Amino acid sequence: MADLKYYDVILKPIVTEKSMELMGSKKYTFSVHTDATKNQIKEAVEKMFPGTKVAKVNTINMDGKTRRRGYQVGKTPKTKKAIVQLTEDSADIEIFSGL
Rank of each mutant, 00 (worst) to 15 (best):
K12R: 13
T66I: 14
M1E: 08
Y71D: 14
S25C: 10
Q85H: 04
E46K: 05
S19W: 03
R69F: 07
K80R: 04
A2I: 01
E46Y: 01
A44N: 04
D92V: 10
K27A: 07
S90F: 05
A91L: 04
N39H: 10
L86S: 04
T16A: 00
Y71G: 12
D89E: 10
P13F: 05
E46W: 02
T87D: 07
D92K: 14
T37C: 07
D89T: 12
K26E: 05
F96N: 02
S19K: 06
Y6P: 05
V9Y: 02
K78P: 04
P13V: 04
T52Y: 00
S97M: 03
K47W: 02
G64T: 06
E43V: 08
D8W: 03
T52K: 00
L86P: 00
A91W: 02
K47R: 07
Q72C: 08
K56G: 07
K78Q: 13
K75P: 03
S90I: 08
I41V: 13
E94H: 09
L11V: 15
N39Q: 13
F49C: 00
T34S: 05
E88D: 09
G98V: 09
T34F: 07
K42P: 00
D92Y: 13
P13K: 01
D35A: 13
V15N: 09
T76D: 09
K18I: 08
T87M: 12
E21P: 04
L99I: 11
K56L: 02
G24R: 13
K53S: 14
Q40H: 10
L22R: 15
K5R: 11
K27C: 15
K81M: 05
T76N: 12
K75A: 10
M48H: 07
P13H: 06
M20N: 05
G64W: 00
